[in-house]
Design a protein around this nucleic acid. Structure first.
Lengths: 275, 275
DNA sequence: CTAGCATATATGCACAGCGCATCGAAGTCA
DNA sequence: TGACTTCGATGCGCTGTGCATATATGCTAG
């Protein structure tokens, strides 16, 4: 515990009556009467409202690359470009529920790992009107990653090219499986870049890598996922020791089958219940 | 680099025409004509809009405790409770600009370290109407922390009591300088809790601690700040070695004055320009 | 003036984690 | 059967960290 004040003592609490806040009041009645009556009479249009959408960066890893799913825009703005799955937030659903709904509707996925990423609110990010985008990222193992067959061709999987190292951050590029560049709409290249940066950082101290693997996996597969996400090679032995010492892995007793070499032990992720 | 596919190869790109997205179209004209004409005719009310506000958790550290600034609510809802400085986002300002504006208007602060924290969007978090709160956290050194004299008594400083250890997370409590509990409005206890959790995590790998100190400081003061934020004691020697080895500190050559013991060297934070 | 005291600052040492090299084990394939 | 590949374990050196110790430097009490 600190042994010494970092600064001299401060003033007492502000007990004097506060001034009216700088923002305009929606109704003078807000300071009188009971709360129920106030809420009954409240006019939401007192402040200008904005459009709020969620955009989901769905990430998966295979063949040493990160992939994401994008949908083609057939409408203005950015007609013909590709966008992250997204949609406007409905008045009665939470932000997280909106992200789940978008994933189910556009990628046919449910029960995936979804976490909030960042909110993008530049006034000019959407040329139509002011739209705040609450971005989420989702992680699925490659077997669940949506294929054209699942989604009737409405989504395309594209490889992520990260033009920076470590956790520098910045926008990323997308390349289609035929090698052509995929142009992204809005600020979605920034959103994807931040998603990559986020999971690179999370990989060090959270078991987020398991979200990108099937229920059982070998240590080599887990390391491949980590290397794919981080974009650099890792020491094999250190990785093994660290993972086995983490207490997050449990040996299944089974081994790989149909491999051209010595089969590796299969592990599963075990949730730390009470620590 | 990964030496082996983590999964068998996948399908080619989705080249079949995409279906109409699940979300309703705002206008049938969106798929025809040029983009300029579309934007001209765009109707923002096609989707229900929401209220968006920013709330700022202003944090500072002194006397071994974390402090924040709250304003008393004189209006419904939560009349009489205390809230983080906040305000609705204006249609023409970015989210970050809104946070800066709120800090300037309610705490009289500018040029402070401000970063986005998280967006809170539970449908019932504001009883008036649907309000999305994009929360920010700001860090200032204790000398710049607003006093009642600066703000005409509209803000109160309160001590943060963190009822969890490490980076567990969860809501925190606020205690006024006279020892009484400060009841918080909305979900602001959760926002504050997440702000504390965030800077605890950031402290390990970013020079965020300097934001809580004046321009020059001793190693002891820096350690005090770290201990205050993390809520636990740190090893003195390791802390000194790590900080001096980080390359982020630069000795000023000056020393403390008017202290009752050997004066310590004063350091300043040096931005890593090109590394 | 001097002894005592509190704190800063430097150094030595034990231990744990990590990178690296080596070696045996266990499969497939020619 | 032997070559080849990958898995999985062991040993060694380097480095960072926690802990203990020693010295330096200012103030204060007597």
């Amino acid at each position: 515990m600190p042994r010494k004040p970092a600064s001299p003592p401060r003033q007492g609490p502000a007990r004097t009556p506060a001034r009216t806040p700088a923002c305009r009041r929606s109704r003078a009645a807000a300071t009188t009467g009971d709360e129920a009556a106030f809420l009954e009479a409240y006019d939401p249009s007192a402040y200008e409202r904005l459009s709020v959408c969620v955009d989901v960066a769905l990430l998966s890893a295979f063949e040493g690359h990160l992939f994401t799913a994008v949908v083609k825009r057939h409408e203005h703005p950015f007609q013909g470009k590709w966008a992250l799955p997204g949609g406007f937030v409905r008045p009665d659903e939470s932000l997280h529920a909106a992200a789940d709904r978008v994933l189910a509707a556009k990628a046919g996925l449910d029960r995936v790992f979804v976490e909030q990423l960042y909110s993008f609110g530049d006034p000019s990010r959407d040329p139509r009107t002011r739209v705040i985008s609450v971005a989420y990222y989702a992680l699925v193992d490659c077997d669940r990653f949506p294929s054209p067959a699942d989604t009737a061709g409405s989504v395309m999987s594209a490889r992520i090219v990260v033009p920076w190292e470590g956790e520098t951050g910045g926008p990323v590029q997308l390349v289609a499986l035929n090698g052509s560049r995929v142009p992204l709409a809005f600020d979605h290249a920034d959103i994807l870049g931040m998603a990559v940066k986020r999971i690179r950082g999370k990989l060090d101290y959270t078991p987020v890598g398991f979200q990108l693997l099937p229920s059982t996996f070998t240590l080599r597969q887990l390391q491949d996922v980590h290397e794919t996400v981080c974009g650099k090679a890792l020491n094999k032995d250190s990785f093994r020791r660290k993972m086995l010492a983490s207490g997050l892995l449990e040996a299944t007793g089974d081994r790989q089958v149909d491999v051209e070499h010595r089969p590796a032990e299969l592990y599963r992720f075990v949730k730390r219940s009470a620590v």
